[in-house]
Structure formats: C-alpha cells, structure tokens
Design a protein around this nucleic acid. Structure first.
Ligand code: MN
Ligand code: MN
Ligand code: MN
Ligand code: MN
Lengths: 137, 137
DNA sequence: AGGCAAATGTAGCACAGGCTACACATCGAT
DNA sequence: ATCGATGTGTAGCCTGTGCTACATTTGCCT
C-alpha cells in the first residue's frame, strides 16, 4: 500500500511545533553557552531563559529522556550527537528568520524578539522562500 | 517616578505570546463559525481544532473566566465585546501574515499552516513591516 | 408521544512546564 | 582545613491542555 499522505490539520501542526520548541531553544542555548564559556551549567540556562533552576532541571530531564543531552550529578550539561545536530539546524533556521526580519525593515530588537517565537513555525518551504529573498537582495 | 521601561527577555516574550495564543485562535474560530452558520457549538470547535469536546469545554471555561465568551448549559457559545474585539484584531493580523507569506512565494498550503503559528509572535513593528511590504508590491 | 442519535456535561487521569522552600554538595578564599 | 557563597537536588504545589469513559440532555424522526 502507498504511504498515507496524512493531511495534518493546521492547528495540530502548531501543537506539534510547540512540542519541539523548548528542545530546540535549549540545545541552541547550550551550544551557545558551551561555545562562549567552555561548559554549560544549569544556572546559565536559568539566567538565559529567566526561569528557576528547578524548571531547568525538569526540562533537562526531558531532554535527556529524549536523547538530546547527557547529565551527571553536579556535572555540566553535554549535548549528544543528536543534540548537536538539532542545535545546528535550529541555529541556522533561527539566523535566517532573524536576518529576514531585518531585511524587510524590522529593527534589531523586535527582530530578535519575534524571531525567537517565529522560528519554530517556519516550514522548510517558508525557510526556502526567506533564503531566496535574502539572496535576491 | 518615570514608568519603568521593563526590558523583557525574549524567551519570556515567547512564553507570554503562548499564553494568549489559544484565546486568539478560539475567538477567531468562534467568529468564523458564527459568520458561517449562525451559531457556534462546542462540537464545531472540536472539529476545527481536532481535539476532544472535553478539551474544548475546559478551554471555553478559561475563555469565559477571562471575559472573552459567555456560555450557558447546552447553549451556543457567544463572544463578549472583548471577545469580538480580540477576534477582529487576531483575524486582521492573521490575514496580513498569510498574505505576506504568499507574497514572498510560499504556497497556499504551507502559508496557511505556517501563518497559524507565526501570527502569535508577530509584534506590531513586524506587522507594520509586513503591511508595508504588501503595499509596495 | 417515544425513542434514538448527537451534543453536552462530569469524573478522573496524564504530562508539560511553571513556582517556592528546603536540603545537600562543591569550590574558592582565607 | 574550614567556612560561606554558590550551585544543585528534591519535595510538593499549581495551571494549562490533552485524553477516555460514562452520564445526562436535547432535538429530531417516526
Ligand atoms: Mn525560539
Ligand atoms: Mn489564527
Ligand atoms: Mn494561530
Ligand atoms: Mn509558538
């Protein structure tokens, strides 16, 4: 039988986007922090996301469960191979969205804020359109 | 004392966007359904959002608590003045985002899907930039 | 009027992702 | 070496948003 072309409802798509959103932002942040300071600790993430360290702990537990990070008591947080891969693609997509907003005339500050949410809802097709727009400039 | 210019962290902004997201989509859907068929029942929303009618009930309860709708047992769902106002602005913003995606070359189907998530993260500044882009076309 | 299908309501469950309060571990400075 | 600050862990709470199972109400058809 042919692969069922499952026509996903658009609201279901948004809910699905949101399920992967925190993972994308966390691995992105972890990669950034590791690049900047060598290691990533829970406090760094609490600072970055403006949440309590407890919330970071619980989120990191889910990321570990899902195979994106490894942890050990009192040790820094490390990305797995899958985590690094997700961080890489997320960073690239985020950057395209950010540059695109700048390109259509949005200011630095609004572009930074808006792209943080928008990035997770940009399909490959829309991402390609944004890239094409940036190239044409 | 001067009003404190509270510099909101970008991740906090995204969390805040998400808190109003369901309300925006629901009042938008309710307004659409009322326009199309006269009244809006819970089943219509369950169909629209592809969730159970129980989930709709609980969401509608929160909307009522927050002053966007009124309900009575076994009666259709009605928007309050605040609900209609929110629906109006949400619809307009949604439409701008949708048309903007079409304008940069995204296909109908991806534009419909992506705009459903993106709309909630578009600041007034970015919305204005999108409108300006559409006008220049 | 009676009965059946559909809509609605309610009870009870799960998980994500927030929080405070408190306990314990680590590490640098003295 | 020890002490205090900082970081980390754990317990227990909350709300939002999803579900299934079951009870009740409504409304339409015969
Ligand atoms: Mn983000
Ligand atoms: Mn919408
Ligand atoms: Mn939406
Ligand atoms: Mn979102």
């Amino acid at each position: 039988m042919a692969t069922k072309k499952q026509k996903i409802n658009r609201h279901s798509r948004v809910r699905s986007d949101h399920r992967t959103e925190l993972a994308e932002d966390y691995v992105e942040a972890i990669a950034d922090i590791v690049d900047a300071s060598g290691t990533c600790r829970a406090v760094d993430l609490a600072q970055q996301f403006q949440v309590s360290h407890v919330t970071v702990n619980r989120t990191i537990s889910r990321l570990e469960r899902d195979g994106y990070v490894t942890t050990a008591p009192y040790a820094p947080i490390e990305l797995t191979k899958a985590g690094r891969r997700l961080a890489e693609t997320s960073q690239q997509r985020h950057e395209v969205v950010f540059q695109f907003l700048l390109a259509i005339g949005v200011g630095e500050s609004a572009a930074a804020a808006d792209s943080e949410g928008i990035e997770h809802h940009v399909s490959p097709e829309t991402l390609a359109a944004m890239k094409a727009f940036l190239d044409e400039q």
